[in-house]
Design a binder for these strands. Sequence first.
DNA 1: AAATAACCTGACACCAGTGTCAAGTAAAAT
DNA 2: ATTTTACTTGACACTGGTGTCAGGTTATTT
Lengths: 213, 213
Amino acid sequence: MPIIKNQQPNTSSTGRVRKKNQLIILKAAEQDFLEHGFKGASIKGIAERAGIPRANVHYYYKNKEAIYSDILLEILALWDSSIITSTEEPAKVLGDYILAKVMYSKTNPEASRIFAGEFIHGAPRLQEYLKTSFKTWIDEVKATVEGWINQGKMDPIDPLYLLFTIWGATQHYADFAPQVTAAMGKDKLSNEDFEQVAKTLTQIILKGCGISK
Amino acid sequence: MPIIKNQQPNTSSTGRVRKKNQLIILKAAEQDFLEHGFKGASIKGIAERAGIPRANVHYYYKNKEAIYSDILLEILALWDSSIITSTEEPAKVLGDYILAKVMYSKTNPEASRIFAGEFIHGAPRLQEYLKTSFKTWIDEVKATVEGWINQGKMDPIDPLYLLFTIWGATQHYADFAPQVTAAMGKDKLSNEDFEQVAKTLTQIILKGCGISK
DNA sequence: AAATAACCTGACACCAGTGTCAAGTAAAAT
DNA sequence: ATTTTACTTGACACTGGTGTCAGGTTATTT
């Protein structure tokens, strides 16, 4: 008798093989999404990259959307984690934040690019996130920076514009990597390059906002 | 007798209809590329958006790649056009450049996003450009900024990092528009918003580089 | 008003990717 | 050791997109 009841089974119990294979698939998928974009990527391509038959991918993931959701969730968790709210002095808080963002571009360029791709195409899958946890986080930061301004610790600059400047300037090194390397005449930025970026950027932004060290 | 010799005809002579239709196709294609990315876009989709039969699109363009090339060329021409080399004072030159870039994000968000998408996916079609006209442009700017530094008109900051900061910070408003609007709690940035962005950014960067007005 | 070149389009053959299923094998539980 | 559950995979039917072509219509030229 053929067994029928065996589709998408337990998530919680044993699942050792499951975990291992999902990781292989996700890593392959990340590359494929990066190279071809969401619509351009194919389960066929992902399966080939992962070195397993396509039907096996379908065993773990219903479709491309499901794989992508898993990847996006992981990225969001990472992205949110650098925290800016704090009781420290602005110079320290912003310096740390800029460094963290630059290092994120260095360490997780794939994540940064997938995230950017999502926005470029209108962020259809991030609407919920933008309305909830993102908005909350933004409001906290806004309050913190406004506090600094009221205490005379920095020039009166719209906190949002400050944030966008930091994001744009730091993510640029991941998202526009081919342009950056072409301009610098290198194949790849070194550790020292990234440290120098963080240092320079911190200098420009702190001084530009009238924050003394 | 059927006429055989009628494929992809004269580019230079009459071609009134040709010009009109190509424009319709390019505009439709731009939207489709924006929404779905290069690989995700389809000639079928472009034709439907343009309101003409698919075979008619094929009459003007051999394939998707050909359409995309046309669009990219136009974008590159536009992108290069803002000039930074000049004999004016740094405050004026950089201020103008930042304003131009912010306004480009406002006026041509589609172009900015397509351009960004290209880099995110590794810029396979821009290698030639990056090695030639882009590199030349970069070298000129580098020389100009280094001149300013040597004359003591600004702090010693790597010209490339300065450029990347400006690019990242300005393009962010086009490329990450959904994130920006979500943070600001608006549907769309107004004219005044963009002017304010340019003003704030100019302030941060000039002051941050130690440039006096 | 012919003739010629430009433009239009339905139809055809083709290819890449999808999702499901049945029949299997490997692993875990009993 | 057997049973149950988890995992694997080739095959199938299907969908959506591609590029070409023949025979048509509309513009332009002469």
